[in-house]
């Protein structure tokens, strides 16, 4: 089966920092991968390069065989993206904005997909709410519906449960797990919640100073660093970056 994502030698240098220093990353179809690392390790820049929103200084990205940036439009049809920090467009009701994004993803009549997405995450009551009136947790849930209603084959999530209360975070995790199981969706997620990562992902990739420093199952990576769990691996790498 074709890989969901293949990135080779991604380099991104900003004026004072190296956000990507030869990042290689392959995600198989249906595979669930976490991209981890301390703040400033280059996670978000890497995600944005993988999505074509930032052009790498060097390296290549292919999504389901479609090279970026040339076939970006075709590639993005198979991708859903949500980020905990990303606001929703102003002056639109939730149902309206999901309808707009549904059409952008090719759903001619987005009504049923919008309704199904809202129901999946238990927020049908928000359909008529203005997007700007939502709490941060509700906004995140709507963002996840936006990213998943077109049944993407690859779901990319940047800190989807950051600043969510445990109940909403649980709802997001459960919904995502079901989507991945039902549709064989590949998942690439960044998170600072290591328990969440160990629960959702079968593989973790640690970034440090823009480089991949570990790639494997949570247990393998923990063992490689001589740490009992991912939380300790994270703290170990963060302390190295602070030095």
């Amino acid at each position: 089966m074709q890989d969901a994502l293949v990135a080779r030698g991604l380099v991104k240098r900003y004026r004072r920092t190296m956000a990507g220093d030869g990042v290689d990353l392959t995600i198989g179809a249906g595979e669930r991968v976490a991209l981890l690392g301390p703040n400033g390790a280059g996670k978000t820049t890497t995600l944005l390069m993988l999505l074509g929103a930032i052009a790498p200084d060097a390296g290549t990205v292919e999504i389901f065989g479609h090279p970026l940036p040339k076939a970006r439009s075709r590639a993005m049809a198979d991708v859903g993206f949500a980020a905990g920090y990303l606001p929703l467009p102003e002056r639109l009701r939730v149902g309206e904005l999901l309808g707009v994004f549904g059409q952008l993803y090719g759903i001619a009549d987005p009504g049923p997909a919008v309704a199904a997405g809202l129901e999946r995450f238990g927020i049908t009551h928000l359909a008529d709410a203005m997007a700007t009136e939502l709490s941060s947790g509700q906004r995140t849930l709507v963002g996840v519906v936006k990213a998943t209603m077109h049944q993407p084959k690859l779901l990319v999530l940047d800190e989807p449960t950051a600043s969510l209360d445990p109940d909403v975070a649980h709802r997001v995790r459960t919904g995502l797990e079901r989507i991945c199981e039902e549709h064989g969706t590949a998942l690439l997620v960044t998170s600072h919640n290591m328990n969440e990562v160990e629960r959702i992902c079968e593989r973790v990739v640690f970034l440090s100073f823009g480089c991949v420093v570990a790639d494997g199952s949570p247990a393998d990576v923990s063992a490689r660093f001589g740490q009992p769990n991912l939380e300790e691996v994270f703290l170990h790498l963060a302390s190295e970056e602070d030095r």
Partner: peptide, 10 residues
């Protein structure tokens, strides 16, 4: 609830 059929980007 089952979403609509998969798409090809529209």
């Amino acid at each position: 609830a089952a979403p609509t059929a998969p798409l090809q980007g529209g």
